[in-house]
């Protein structure tokens, strides 16, 4: 029996090592840490709860495995007759409640932060369509300044397997949303037809775009880069083909880009008037 027990111990240890190794080595198997304070805190929360679950799992499955190995009829085990214990029932009601409170406290903190949409530096409206996104840059009075659509840029041939798939297959668009670094950007989300959902995993930001509603969300990105996500609410035939791409650039570069956009839209308005 002792050899059985020690073999179980070894198995459990080996399993734990595999878990720890897997978690350390393969970041691509896990939730991204992301590039905002919120996304980092969400990832920490996710890992905390994951490890609590692993510990509980090892205890519960460990007890089960010990029982399955030692308390078998083939080893001559005779059944005990105990069948209740109020003390145990209370114990395994109270301990989980304590663990849940420990989880709920940091979760509440992060949630409060996510909901703090005020004090923004700029506002962008995100509008869902079947099957593309429209981005509108708004001024302080929420008047539209610059507006454009963002469509999937992956060629049809790649989707149908007629040409080789590119690096950003299905995660590339014609016009990216451009925002500056170190700026609190408030997003107003809505939709023109069915419900869509705008998700940038690296920002820890996912919010539904619902017709007739204006939802709020925000992000303050520290690192320049291109961040990719997708629509995450089934919105019809081409739901899988409306990616979200955000290019985050230094403030000065953004000002330059934005000025050019303003000028282009002024020229366009003039051309329309004539």
């Amino acid at each position: 029996m002792m050899s059985k027990l020690s073999s179980i111990a070894r198995t459990v240890l080996a399993t734990l090592c595999v878990f720890a190794g897997a978690a350390a080595v393969a970041a691509e198997y896990n939730m991204p840490v992301g590039v905002t304070d919120v996304s980092r805190e969400i990832q920490e929360l996710h890992m905390t709860i994951f490890w609590i679950c692993v510990v509980i799992g090892v205890l519960v499955f460990g007890a089960m495995l010990v029982s399955m190995v030692l308390h078998r009829k083939s080893l001559g085990a005779t059944p005990a007759t105990f069948h209740e214990s109020t003390k145990l029932e209370l114990l395994w009601t109270v301990i989980p409640i304590v663990i849940l409170v420990v989880m709920a406290l940091p979760a509440t903190d992060v949630l409060v932060k996510i909901y703090d949409t005020g004090g923004e530096d700029m506002v962008v409206e995100v509008r869902g369509y079947q099957w593309k996104w429209q981005y509108k840059y708004l001024d302080e009075e929420l008047n539209e300044q610059v507006s454009f659509f963002s469509n999937l840029a992956t060629p049809r041939g790649q989707i149908l397997g007629q040409s080789e798939k590119g690096e950003n297959y299905l995660l590339e668009v014609d016009n990216e949303l451009v925002i500056p670094t170190d700026t609190k950007v408030r997003f107003l989300l809505t939709s023109n037809d069915v419900i869509h959902s705008w998700w940038v995993p690296d920002f820890g930001l996912k919010r539904d775009a619902i017709p007739g509603f204006i939802n709020e969300a925000w992000a303050n990105v520290k690192e320049p880069g291109v961040y990719r996500g997708q629509c995450t609410e089934l919105c019809g035939k081409d739901h899988g083909f409306m990616p979200v791409v955000v290019r985050v650039v230094p403030k000065a570069e953004f000002q330059q880009w934005y000025a050019a956009q303003l000028e282009a839209s002024a020229t366009e308005a003039l051309a329309m008037a004539n």
């Binding site: 029982s67 399955m68 308390h71 078998r72 059944p79 005990a80």
Partner: peptide, 8 residues
């Protein structure tokens, strides 16, 4: 299961 006489 604990201290039962299990078969599978």
């Amino acid at each position: 299961m604990w201290r039962g006489s299990m078969t599978f």
